[in-house]
Amino acid sequence: MGYEAILVLLLAGVFLIVLANFLSNLLSHKSDNPAKREPYECGIETIGPTWIQFKVGYYLFAILFLVFDVEVAFLIPWAVVYKEIGTVALVEIIIFLFILGLGLAYAWKKRALKWE
């Protein structure tokens, strides 16, 4: 593998960003006043902390995503050797996907996919 290419790409990327930031800092016109420091928002200014607690629904979707992410990690080696093994591989993966599909069906049934 051409590690040199990766290193050159890495250095070029870092160099380009640093250079662009440095030049724009050097060339830009600088002015400062209180109005500039206000957040870009319409309407009235926010009062109190703007961090809020998220809904637990997000967590559910994240964990469903993670499960199917792991599934992909197992599908990749299957896809590579599928032709070699043939029909048996198809049956094996259908069982695998069926069991996982049960999970999705359960989530659907329990209305976990519904945004409330």
Partner: peptide, 12 residues
């Protein structure tokens, strides 16, 4: 796949 199924059900 059974383990992953257990994860989904447990999380829900």
């Amino acid at each position: 796949s059974v383990l992953l199924l257990a994860v989904i059900i447990g999380a829900i």
